[in-house]
Design a protein around this nucleic acid. Structure first.
Lengths: 153, 153
DNA sequence: ATTTTTGCAAACCTTTTGCATGGAA
DNA sequence: TTCCATGCAAAAGGTTTGCAAAAAT
């Protein structure tokens, strides 16, 4: 049993989110939704574009950038920034949360607050800054990769 | 009195860090060190290059990227990633710490742990991931900008 | 019929790299 | 004299944008 499964998002609900927000449901967006639904780690617009090209899905590169931006605005996916500076997206639940990204396979898990909110509040108090947003990213090895790394040794 | 002043780094100690690590002390690196010493918020290689060009310091763009990379390896500055994906650097103290970046003026402050380590440990425990590194960035308004924003209203 | 989306290609930016030259040790 | 560092320019990504054509409502 996995405590923290990657959040799975089905294509239907992605399309529904677009539709109910008044955006048009188009062929490319449907196919893109399926591609996104098939991802279980983080992914970049670029990566999906490459994948789509290989599968001859007929979705242009620009569409990925535009659509993923849109999905991020709608809160369907969350945009994170990798240490390299690339923009990546992960499927996300509605509430505030943070991600752990596996540095080996890219799998992500979400984690609960665990006292972070208080720590951030304390930092705000001490620094005199009025915090607008905070942003915690954890990088590490997921269970599977820990095992694989151990096997290799 | 400011509790958390931006860390000021003087040019001399930057040069000393290079020297003692066995790297050559060159003209461009000296001038770059002064430029870095003059920054009090975060800055990108690109920004410094533009600045240097305006001041006719004769330091090429590539040198900024190479030298700042080096300084980050030496621990003289820390590399952060802005939400836009750009790589930025901030002067930093040696111990583990986190930054608050002012979203209006770019001023940074460093903050103490405040229970973050325990929170991260708890997240590791719950998720089953073996955490390799974590990375907290806070964005908000510094004291000065809070006041200025209030004045404008 | 109207308005949004798309695709294409070009433009943009930041960052990286190859290679010959120049400078530090 | 021996390498390391620099400058230049080109390359390499990733991301954005203008515009005409296509598709959705």
């Amino acid at each position: 049993m996995l405590l923290y499964d990657p959040v799975m998002l089905d294509a239907t609900s992605i399309v529904a989110a677009l539709d109910s927000a008044g955006y048009r449901v188009t062929g490319p967006r449907r196919r893109l939704a399926e591609l996104v639904a098939g991802q279980d780690g983080h992914f970049t617009a670029s990566e999906l574009a490459t994948l789509a090209k290989a599968r001859r899905l007929g979705i242009s590169r620009a569409t990925f950038f535009r659509a993923l931006d849109l999905l991020a605005e709608l809160g369907v996916v969350e945009r994170i920034v990798l240490p390299s500076g690339e923009h990546a997206y992960v499927a996300c639940a509605r509430s505030h949360h943070h991600h752990i990204v596996c540095s080996r396979c890219g799998r992500t898990a979400e984690v609960a607050d665990q006292g972070l909110a208080e720590a951030v509040a304390a930092m705000a108090r001490d620094s005199g800054y009025r915090i607008q947003t905070h942003w915690l990213e954890l990088f590490g090895l997921c269970r599977y990769c820990q095992r694989r790394v151990a096997d290799e040794a």
